[in-house]
Write a protein that binds this DNA or RNA. Sequence first.
DNA 1: TTCCTTCTGCAATCTCTTTGCAGGTATTAA
DNA 2: TTAATACCTGCAAAGAGATTGCAGAAGGAA
Lengths: 135, 135
Amino acid sequence: MADQHELREKGLRLTPQRELVLQAVRDLGHATPEEVAEKVRATHPGINLSTVYRNLETLENVGLVLHTHLGHGGATYHAAEELTHLHLVCSICGDIGDAPIDTAANFVNTLSDDYGFKTDVTHFAIYGTCQKCSK
Amino acid sequence: MADQHELREKGLRLTPQRELVLQAVRDLGHATPEEVAEKVRATHPGINLSTVYRNLETLENVGLVLHTHLGHGGATYHAAEELTHLHLVCSICGDIGDAPIDTAANFVNTLSDDYGFKTDVTHFAIYGTCQKCSK
DNA sequence: TTCCTTCTGCAATCTCTTTGCAGGTATTAA
DNA sequence: TTAATACCTGCAAAGAGATTGCAGAAGGAA
Ligand SMILES: [Mn+2]
Ligand SMILES: [Mn+2]
Ligand SMILES: [Zn+2]
Ligand SMILES: [Zn+2]
């Protein structure tokens, strides 16, 4: 398992629970801690929610997982290698669309040139109204 | 008071507490419910936190106030007429910079043209690393 | 006034997340 | 192999932020 490498470098371990949490995040695309726990419990009912929280934090620390904010509330988690798109979140129907990161390239460059600000466009969703709900 | 108009139309009242909450939001620029309560309590110690929450919600419903997300946690509130800038939030030092909304105009137009998505660029902050922390 | 609705303070409750701890498991060093 | 050490888990408790039920107060209409 290649993931083990990222962890062992920092003295951390790839426990069964940790591996299940990582796999759940990868399978789900994006998911809340609760959703991750639910997914893992489908095969391993014993896992505790606090273990999920702690492992999401650990996996984020080693760079295997990232969190974003898609709604008003808490975070949702992505596999790090998969966070290659913007999230277009509709405030009306809640739908989550995707757009290539390049869509924001000019915007990001402008912020860098004019303000010296290095933008991470994926950390927060792009919020608005989807095509369907605009009509 | 012009604000009274927005409220009375919907059978709502401009109570002293409601007016204080609105004034606090205007004075503070952007503020969490807790910060609003603290500000109001400087002159009116009796106000209850739940009253602040309820009034922020009511003021948002009538369009006098809006909320945005500047950090990982909960919402912060703005006076509606003042939300005319992007928030550039630094993930390292926590600094909150401003940029004109027009900075995002091309980006917003692209999303509209290509995806039919109408973006509200102020609801979530722009997240990244400020100039100072980039060095 | 009288009647009706809205609003407030207070306490209780809820959801989400974090933390302390004791026992368990992996890794390393004798 | 054994002993020492560090990491990890489940469980329960606690914390933080936000919401809700309720009784009384206050605003507005007539
Ligand atoms: Mn929001
Ligand atoms: Mn975040
Ligand atoms: Zn929609
Ligand atoms: Zn900074």
